[in-house]
Structures are given as C-alpha cells and as structure tokens.
Design a protein around this nucleic acid. Structure first.
Lengths: 228, 228
DNA sequence: CGCTGCATTGAGTCGTATCAAAAATTGTGG
DNA sequence: CCACAATTTTTGATACGACTCAATGCAGCG
C-alpha cells in the first residue's frame, strides 16, 4: 500500500466496486487527493437539469435518483444509483439531469476539470467509465421496453425482482416511496398502490410498515407477471 | 495524406463525422486495414439479440433500427442510427440488441477483437467512443421521458421535429413505415396513423405518397404539441 | 385485372389516469 | 406515553386515451 494513500480511500467502502477499482494504490493516491467526501441528507438536490453538468462523484453509500422533467412539470426518473455508482458525465456538454438523494448519501466529489485530466492520464480509468456508461445505456434501453410496452403489474413485479437482486432474502426493504416508484415506473401513485394490493391479495407478496417491507412468497409468479 | 491510406477511407463519406474523425490520416491508415465495407439490403437483420455482441461497425450510409423484444414477441425500437453512427459495444459483455437495416445500408465492419486492440492503442478513439456512448445514453433517457409520460400526439410531433433536424427543409421524407414509427414511439400503427390524420386536419402538416412525404406547415404548433 | 402489402377509418373495450375521500403511518410537543 | 398534526398509503368512482378487432381504401406489381 502506498504511503500517501489517503485514509479515506484505503478504508473506502467502495474501493473495489466503484470506478476506483480500476486503479492500483499508487494511482488511487493521486486521484484521492482530488476528491473530497460530502454527506448529503435525504431529499437534497445534488444537481439540477438547468445546471452546467459539472458534477463528478462516486456514491460511497446511499442512493440517488436521476430525473427528467417535462415542460409542464411531470417527472420521470431515468435511473437509480446506489453504492459504487458514478454520477456525472465528464466530456459531455449537454444532457444534465436532476439528481436527488433518496436517502442520506455520502459522495466522493471531484472537480470535473481535474477528473477529466485524471482520466486522460489513466487509460484504465477511462476504460472503466466507458464500460459503466455502456451498462447504463443498456439499462436505459431495457427501461424503454418496460415503459413503452409493459403493463402496470409487470412493471411493479419487475421492480420488486430488481430489488431482490441486491437487497435479497425473501424479505426486502423498499427504499422508495410509492411516489418515487411511480416516477420510476411511469405510473401514478395510485396505480402502484393498487398493484401492491393485488399482489398481496394473490398471496405473491406480503407487506407491512406502510408497504415498505415486502416479503416475496412466490418468486416464480413474480417472474411470470414481469413478462407481460 | 499518408501514402497507404486505403482509398475507401480517404473517399469515405463519413471520414469526418464517424468515430474515424478522431484519427489523423496515418492512424486511420492502420485502422482502415482492419475494416471491410459491407452493403446490406433493407430489411437485413445485421445482428440479433441472442448473438454474441461481436458486431462493431460504422454506418457509412443508410439507417439501422435497434430493437428489443418482449418474451411474448412485442417489439420496441430503442434507437435509430444513421450515417456516421457506430453500431456495437466493444468491451461490453451483455446487452446485445437486434439491429435491422431500414434502408439499403453500407457498413464498415471491424472484428470486435481487433477493434478493441485499436482502441486500447489510441486514446482519442476511445474518447470518441465514450462521448458517443454518453450521447446515446442521453438520448435513451430522453426517450424514457417520452415513452413514459407523453401523449400519442406529443410523440408523433416530437418524432417529426426530430426528423427535421437532419433531413430538413419544410418537406421531409419519413424513412419509416407506420409500423416502424409505432415500434419507435411505443404506439400502434393505428394510433400513429390517426395522429398523422389529425395533424393534417389541423393544417399543421401535409402528406402524400401514402404519408411518406411530409410537409411541415406550422412548426411552432408542432413544437408546442410535442410538449404534452 | 386481381393480388399483396400498407395506410386509413370506425366501433367497442380495457387499462390507467384523475379526482376525491378514508385509513394508516410517522412525527411532534405536551 | 398520549394526543394531534402532517404525510403517505389505500380505496373508490369516473373519465379518457390508446389498444384491439374489423373493414375499407389505396398503391405497386406480376
């Protein structure tokens, strides 16, 4: 381990899952000097659609939703980010989104200009960002299919299955309000709620605490519902 | 100009708009050796969802639609590509899509492995791909908003405006069938047709030749419709 | 001329949005 | 710990937009 590796990097929870995983300790030491840790409270608007697309940060812990807004004010979440994900678009000149923390979130923020320089010097870093960007693109395309073609029930079922991939166990914490889920799935609060109710009635899930804790009873049924 | 620059590169229509624009002549000479031109007929399936994600190519002329398919067979176009665009995802291991030529199309195809090697050697090429990928991501997110929240009329209006950006003039050729437009906008053929009819009735556009040639009479009206 | 494929038009249905109200949950101050 | 306010979720009634199914119109072509 490099002597000058900042402590916050060495102990970092996402040392091996974030973009930083592409760097060895000595490279990380240099990048580490550029970044600073920032903690934002749930609900904080981290950056906004009108802004200059300057944000570059790793999410150390927490979660962030990316939003687009129609001229008349309706919102659509176009992505959800969690631990280890990168926020921002170095080298892009447009396409800024609104980013809002949906939990208390710890960010490791870099000034865009110095982050761009760091990438130019370190091909592995740039490669890692390219691969991440492609994954995001594939997710965004998958979501086009969902938003354009799938029924409300299929969207909710797919959403729950997506949560199980990480949170896991038969029981999962839903980290979003009904409203946030609606934004993400392109549905209204009421429709999301009704789908939860119907899934409960069918014995496929059980829920309590205002529907924030969900137990999956019949995963196979969810799978098949998610396809319609 | 480098002596060994292949003629097909020097004369290439997209020398300055494709990924190749990031390369100088001597670099292009090397990359050029790896590629080969292929002409495919309209309707050709260039690559398919099940395949191995090996395709890497520049579109020299023509147009390609990228499709995803639901388990029960419905299609959703997740992107349209035109002259100068790049098809494929070097360094990505999943996320393959179906790509179908919607006109006779000329491709400059590279083997994925050698294209990856070329990118590793040439930072400018990799940077150019990163920037393109980010643009695609931004488009995909914009489309999420459209598909999730906008009315049929707004989608069709927005689609026509998008065509004007490139094809231009008051009059534009619609390069897609009603069915293809429906796939792209997440609508049925009938709904697309009805929207065209209503736009004609309102005097905002005029169309003939089975609706394949469209004249925009009131661009401002289209703009405002595209926002609902 | 009669195919064949695509676009248009029409009638009816279904799913989700909308509007409105009740119920459950969370948070706050006494 | 309880009472009360604020927020979120659930439930209900209704409306509307897009889909579905079906028929007709129109062009290109053998």
């Amino acid at each position: 381990m490099a002597d000058d590796l900042p402590k916050r990097c060495h102990d970092c929870l996402v040392r091996d899952t974030s973009l930083c995983a592409s760097l060895c300790d000595s490279e990380l030491a240099e990048l580490g000097k550029l970044g600073r840790k920032v903690v934002v409270r749930e609900g904080t608007v981290v950056t906004s659609e009108g802004d200059d697309n300057l944000l570059c940060a790793n999410i150390v812990s927490g979660a962030i939703k990316l939003l687009k807004t129609t001229p008349d004010g309706r919102e659509q979440a176009v992505g959800l980010l969690a631990d280890g994900d990168f926020v921002g678009q170095p080298f892009a000149d447009s396409g800024a989104l609104t980013a809002i923390a949906i939990r208390n979130t710890e960010l490791c923020i870099y000034p865009r200009s110095s982050f761009e320089r760091a990438m130019a010097d370190r091909p592995k870093l740039e490669r890692a960002l390219l691969e991440r960007t492609m994954r995001s693109l594939n997710e965004a395309r998958e979501r086009q299919l969902t938003l354009a073609r799938k029924s409300a029930k299929a969207r909710v079922a797919g959403f729950l299955l997506g949560l199980m991939r990480d949170g896991n166990m038969g029981s999962i914490e839903v980290p979003l309000s009904r409203g946030d889920i609606g934004d993400y799935l392109g549905l209204t609060i009421e429709t999301v709620s009704r789908q939860f109710t119907e899934l409960k009635a069918a014995g496929i899930i059980a829920a309590d605490r205002g529907g924030r804790t969900v137990a999956i009873h019949d995963r196979a049924a969810l799978q098949s519902l998610a396809e319609d």
